[in-house]
């Protein structure tokens, strides 16, 4: 267990270090309100990364490049279904979860039945979803979030925390339970570690893998809904930035891209780490180029701590 715990501890230590550094450089960076704001942004990323995490755990080069497109589409659909009224929230949730599940199902079918490499299948799907977005945005007004959704994402509600942080915590517990305590969870690790052996042991490998992609679509759709609540209205391509940052959060959290090992708790810390790092760089008064250069270099250094594959000599 200590082996699995190490990356999580490194990431958590780095989060604390960055917070201290931020507070030193710009007092107020680690104030409670600011921490809450960073936590909300991390929750948005963390929810996307939950689906990404499942797909990566399932192995066979599992990856979902379509998450950003699903987020944008879900935010657009939800915004139009609810169009600023609380009464429309429930139908909006149903609509965007259906959209996410449908796209995830198509990804899953392509990866399992047609045996298309996940990178290629979800990349092609990203192109399709981006096309859908252009069609959908043409002719319908950009929707608005229901007040209750905006409050859920950004207003302190229960014990001083906004609903989205409770939702994230709940997802964290559910993922830990799913991965460690259920048959489905055992099957995910089994197909991720050795698909052939899992099939011989009677695991329905195709069905399990398909479910992972459906879940990834659903998580992205939920994230899209929350991002709509965070930003107030659904504007163009809100999800674009989440494609690769969700993958990085998973890797920083100690789940290697090769699959079969890891978990979601680390991914949550990984998402926090990414968001705190970006928050710190935004606080420092340096221009866009400097921020990007430092962020890129920091990512490289962080990655050196994790997921280095074995050398040929060993």
């Amino acid at each position: 267990m200590s082996g699995a715990l190490k990356p999580i501890l490194i990431a958590a230590g780095l989060v604390v270090l960055l917070m201290i550094a931020g507070e030193t450089v710009s007092p107020g960076f680690a104030s409670p309100e600011q921490i809450l704001r960073l936590a909300i942004v991390a929750a948005l990323l963390g929810i996307v990364a939950a689906g990404q995490n499942l797909v990566i755990l399932g192995g066979r080069e599992g990856i979902d490049l379509s998450v950003g497109g699903v987020i944008s589409l879900s935010a657009l659909v939800a915004g139009n279904v609810m169009s600023g009224s609380d009464a429309g929230l429930f139908p909006a949730i149903l609509a965007c979860v259906a959209v996410g599940a449908a796209i995830g199902l198509l990804n899953g079918l392509g990866v399992t039945l047609l045996r298309i490499p996940p990178l290629v299948m979800t990349l092609g799907m990203l192109g399709v979803v981006q096309g859908l977005l252009v069609v959908a945005r043409n002719g319908i007004p950009s929707g608005r979030a229901a007040p209750v959704l905006s409050d859920f994402v950004s207003r302190p509600q229960w014990l001083g925390l906004p609903g989205i942080l409770w939702l994230w915590l709940l997802i964290g517990l559910a993922m830990a339970g799913l991965l460690n305590r259920t048959v489905f969870g055992q099957r995910i690790f089994a197909i991720g570690a050795n698909e052939g052996a899992a099939r011989l042991a009677g695991v329905p490998t195709q069905l399990t893998r398909m479910m992972l992609y459906v879940l990834s679509g659903v998580f992205s759709a939920i994230a899209g809904l929350c991002i709509l609540g965070y930003s107030g209205s659904s504007f163009a391509n809100v999800g674009g930035q989440y494609m690769l940052s969700s993958i990085i959060a998973v890797v920083l959290g100690g789940t290697p891209l090769s699959g079969g090992r890891g978990g979601y708790t680390g991914t949550m810390i990984g998402a926090l780490l990414l968001v705190v790092l970006q928050g710190l760089l935004t606080t420092l008064s340096i221009d866009e180029s400097g921020r990007q250069i430092i962020f890129g270099s920091a990512l490289i250094v962080l990655l050196l701590f994790y997921g280095r594959s074995r050398g040929l000599q060993s």
Binding site: I63, L244, P256, G290, G296
Partner: peptide, 26 residues
Amino acid sequence: ILRLQAIVATFATSVLFLGLALFVMP
């Protein structure tokens, strides 16, 4: 040489290269 996973490592360098490009021409 440093054995990082290609997908994430080249994504990280793409952020770095974009930063350098913005530095050369804002």
